[in-house]
Design a protein around this nucleic acid. Structure first.
Length: 283
DNA sequence: ATAAGAATAT
DNA sequence: TATATTCTTA
């Protein structure tokens, strides 16, 4: 039915990008060294709040969190005795922590794209999460597929709630798994339209999935231009360290109950920083 | 050359 | 463990 088409789209909007849900995904973890290397100065000028409604100021600033009291200096990882390493190279980004919210976006994106088109790049684009890389998505997708597979084998229909799920599956269980996921990729039915994600354009070209154009609404514009796109990856978020540019608190003081979101944490094993998107919206 | 996917590493 | 990185292949 024709209506169907219009409908899916409406639903799509309604479900996927809830402003309230996705606002806070901003993460900003730039490597200090990188910033210096690129001579990035106060990149704070971005206000990616595409939301149409009021937003709440995203705490977006996750940067070095608590670690702060550095007298205005980034923490330069000095290797103790190790040797000098040129910081501008070999920079590793903090590990991404998949929160239920983030995972939800992931699932929504996959669900709406359809298994066929649900590939890392596309998913990443639909998710529109700042700082999220294709690799991040690919890794998560791999794991998610295993989860789906495992589930198919056990019971065909009882998602969360079935025994046997390792604690690890909890994250996945926190989000409803669309029915079609469990089915088999039957490349025959073209039910799910591959809607084309308008241009997000982060830096690469957007592979066209199909020839449809839809007016997307959630879109952040970020990432302006950074260094040189070597053939690897280089998307970095903004950084906001360096100048105490106060974050404009847009009027919503929020309750002070939350002690600063913990966005960064350190892995107990290695001391790696982990980036965490915050859970602002709740499921 | 780019990206997906599986394998492997941390 | 979860996520990253590497490797192989499409």
């Amino acid at each position: 039915m024709k209506e169907d088409e219009s409908n899916w789209f409406s639903k799509w909007e309604d479900e996927l990008p809830l402003p309230e849900d996705l606002m806070p995904l901003s993460q900003t973890l730039i490597t200090p060294d990188l910033a210096i290397a690129f001579d990035i100065r106060t990149p704070n000028t971005h206000q990616p709040l595409p939301l149409n409604h009021q937003q709440e100021l995203a705490p977006v600033t996750i940067s070095t969190p608590s670690s702060q009291p550095n007298s205005g200096e980034f923490d330069s990882p000095e290797l103790g005795g190790g040797g000098g390493d040129e910081p501008a190279r070999t920079l590793k980004r903090p590990r991404l922590v998949w929160t239920p919210q983030l995972h939800k976006r992931f699932v929504d994106a996959v669900a709406h794209l359809g298994i066929k088109n649900a590939v890392p790049k596309t998913i990443m684009q639909l998710m529109s999460v700042d700082g999220l890389t294709r690799e991040n998505v690919a890794s998560h997708l791999q794991k998610y597929r295993l989860y789906l597979k495992r589930m198919q084998g056990l019971s065909s229909g009882g998602p969360a709630g079935s025994v046997g799920d390792s604690a690890t599956d909890h994250l996945f269980a926190s989000s409803p798994v669309p029915a079609h996921f469990l089915h088999q990729g039957r490349p025959n039915s073209e039910h799910y339209l591959p809607y084309v994600p308008v241009a997000a354009l982060q830096q690469q070209q957007m592979a066209a999935v199909a020839g449809h154009h839809a007016q997307l609404q959630p879109r952040f514009g970020q990432i302006g231009h950074f260094g040189s796109p070597r053939n690897g990856q280089f998307e970095h978020p903004f950084l906001n360290r360096q100048n105490p540019q106060a974050v404009h608190r847009v009027g919503t003081p929020v309750h002070s109950s939350v002690p600063a979101s913990y966005v960064d944490d350190v892995d107990s094993a290695n001391g790696r920083k982990v980036l965490t998107l915050f859970p602002t919206g709740d499921d």
